[in-house]
Design a protein around this nucleic acid. Structure first.
Lengths: 242, 242
DNA sequence: TCCAGCCTACTTCCATGCGAGCTGGTATGC
DNA sequence: GCATACCAGCTCGCATGGAAGTAGGCTGGA
């Protein structure tokens, strides 16, 4: 018959409730709807998501394992706070993982009009465009897209999965601080230099360029995070409570 | 009153069933008791572990997320096969993560009789000892311990957690192939060189040394894995079935 | 002998009931 | 007025029953 647009990977299996709960709760944490340091109960989450407690509990355990929240037995769920030292550690991990990806990209056979090179250039241009339009939120999204593309095009799917999981934490921190940070003017130059070294097929320099870029990123992020109560995290958006 | 020895972290809470199931199943996969590519049902696992199906299901979902197995909806659980290309990817990820750890270790202030340096030297010696005794299984364990120490002493706990999770996959592959591989004579020299560069406080050379070491490791592992059916994985031990 | 269609057995997945334990508030004794 | 002990409410954790869905065998027909 007619083909309808697939909502996710395979249509027909309507996505299990546990998966829905996982995605929704994680999205709420990243966006800040569930504020860092706030407390909720699994029952509240279940009611808001219109599923029973079991799939919510599964999702919560999974999210705890990925360090998005902490569940104290019989005490409730605490959303992970945003701490400067945590972010420092995360950026170090990213340097390692993205470094491998970038070096791998720069180790391919050179080719004129290489498709991957062009794709990366395109993503880089979109960052510049968002910045010219002075749209910081879109810039954050495009910047995230650029970095995700770097690891996805490395050809190592395991690397991509691990890095994507870590990168989401960094993305959350950037989203919640995007209006507090100084104007990211140097970012695009960094990106351009990374791509330059990749198309030069120079793995060492490419990795160094990425490392410098990430270190500048954490250097701007840390003082912002430290300015806010470093223990309990902070909340831009109202905590969901009734 | 009298203090009794704690079994785990905090006594009084006797370790949740979900945690028990997670650890036991993962251990069974790593040891080969649950053979690569084999299929089991959650109910079978629950009966063997003497817990109900709920905590087993939670553990299984978590293990699927860490790529130890795959759960096909309403079809059962499939233990992850051992594939050469998977292992190649895992070793690349390890190069990135351990590289950061080693560089970080080599970036500390130099100090005579540095405690961490000595601890690493000790772990290295234990590898040599196991090799001199021609005890391959113990060598595999000591080698694992050495690499785990490298990341744990890096001072980055997030890095340690991520890397440990990935490293367990490599450890499983080594355990299941330990009797098939050539004698690991060069391994100790590699370790010694890494430690040398760390105590020289030379981050770049230390990272390069580790990279070389890991590349040699995957170069010996891949042909062994490829010699066995690369699609379905392989089974050294009998599959648990009734 | 081969093929097609049905049907049974088995699997994961979800909802709900119950139990154990922690927290915060309140009342009582000093 | 203050400290302490108790109690009620709320929370997670686990077990169990039912529902939905798939795979593979089995039967009937050509």
């Amino acid at each position: 018959m007619t083909a309808s647009v697939e909502t996710s990977a395979i249509v027909g299996t309507p996505a299990p409730h546990a998966e829905i709960a996982y995605e929704q709760i994680k999205a709420a944490i990243i966006s800040g709807a569930l504020a860092p340091g706030s407390r909720v109960s699994e029952q509240q989450l279940a009611e808001q998501l219109n599923v029973s407690r079991t799939p919510v509990h599964q999702a919560v355990v999974r999210l705890q394992n990925e360090e998005w929240l902490e569940v104290s037995s019989r005490r409730g769920v605490t959303i992970a706070p945003l701490r400067a030292d945590e972010m420092r550690e995360i950026y170090e991990v990213l340097i390692g993982l993205e470094g491998v990806a970038v070096a791998s990209l720069a180790s391919r056979e050179p080719a004129a009009d290489d498709e991957v090179d062009l794709e990366l250039q395109d993503a880089c241009s979109r960052c510049e465009l968002a910045l010219e339009e002075k749209n910081l939120r879109r810039w954050a999204a495009e910047d995230d897209r650029f970095h995700r593309l770097l690891i996805e095009r490395s050809g190592n799917s395991r690397l991509a999965r691990v890095a994507a999981s870590v990168m989401e934490h960094a993305h959350r921190a950037r989203l919640l601080t995007v209006n507090l940070r100084p104007w990211p003017s140097a970012s695009n130059e960094d990106h351009a230099r990374i791509l330059q070294e990749i198309s030069n097929r120079d793995p060492l320099r490419a990795r160094t360029a990425l490392e410098d870029h990430r270190r500048r990123g954490i250097a701007t992020l840390v003082p912002i995070l430290e300015a806010y109560s470093p223990q309990s995290g902070f909340a831009f958006m109202p905590i969901q409570q009734r």
